[in-house]
Design a protein around this nucleic acid. Sequence first.
DNA 1: AATGCGGGGAC
DNA 2: GTCCCAGCATT
Length: 347
Amino acid sequence: MDFSDELIKWYLENKRDLPWRHTTDAYIIWLSEVILQQTRVGQGLPYFNRFAEKYPTVNDFAAADEDEVLRLWQGLGYYSRGRNMLKTARMVRDEYGGTFPTTYDELIKLKGIGEYTAAAIASFAANELRAVVDGNVYRVLARYFGIAEPINSTGGKKIFQATATDFLNKKKPAVHNQAIMEFGAMLCKPKNPACGICPIRLACYAFKYNATAALPVKLKKLSIKQRFINYFLFTNGDEILMNKRGEGDIWANMYDLPMVETSELLSLDELLVIPTSTENFGHDVKISTASEVTKHILTHQHLYIRFITLTYKPVKMSPNWVFVKVENLQKHPLPKPLFIFLDNFLN
DNA sequence: AATGCGGGGAC
DNA sequence: GTCCCAGCATT
């Protein structure tokens, strides 16, 4: 048996029973694939179930509004995925008559669908000959074939895509793609791969040269920015003054609170003098309570957040601010740290 | 080619 | 703490 046959054999004996593996409906597969971008199966699964339940067809999805989609997406991260899904659902409704495309060339044109996702949907839904290359595939190929080119360099990506295409099972592209990804996720893991039970270890470069820890190679950069965010909560217990965020920053189009961002961590006293609360909210505001600073970690930013509760209404208002009834809070998509804070504050 | 975009699990 | 997850869009 060759590389692909071994992977497929392993897959058929060891695969997880996942809901999107019981359908060839391109819409359902698209739901699962976008939800799983940069997201583990265990984290994405409950979201998939909620989306599939609430929007059984692409036309149901297209009829939603953005707040509703983002609220359903809340907590999953990378929220542009949700916003792009809505654009794509409407595009499919309006320009494809509600029939989700199944060819790579059509799929790649849609918002939020890149090379990986287009190949996944085309192969799973229509058995099109397209090799998927995701994080799992990079790892399996790098180790098995001993490919040391960085997976996040332009040249490396080409080599891995070409290798994946070369070794794609031309008779069974769909199950081959599923198999290599599942193999990477379950057996050929980033840390402590299960080489002892690996069916292809004898032909594996990394096993032979004890190089699983060194492969794949990845160029690392990532500078982490520190941000200091002071949220001001205006509430009478019945309604809350919220801020609808714009685009071009984290949590685009989601709802948070009136905010003052500072370039360093300020004490509460410093914060309340110049040029913060009174200038932003009016001179009549009075502090009620202030939380400790909590740290919220994103991939590329460390946020230091303080919540300050003020007397009910600010004197000045901003166009992005809106009073939200507490009973309607559940309709609004909130960043994780704000959701946690309000959950504690209101209950 | 480089950067921004979440949140969480595994170690 | 570090790494990375069924990546994509933008510049």
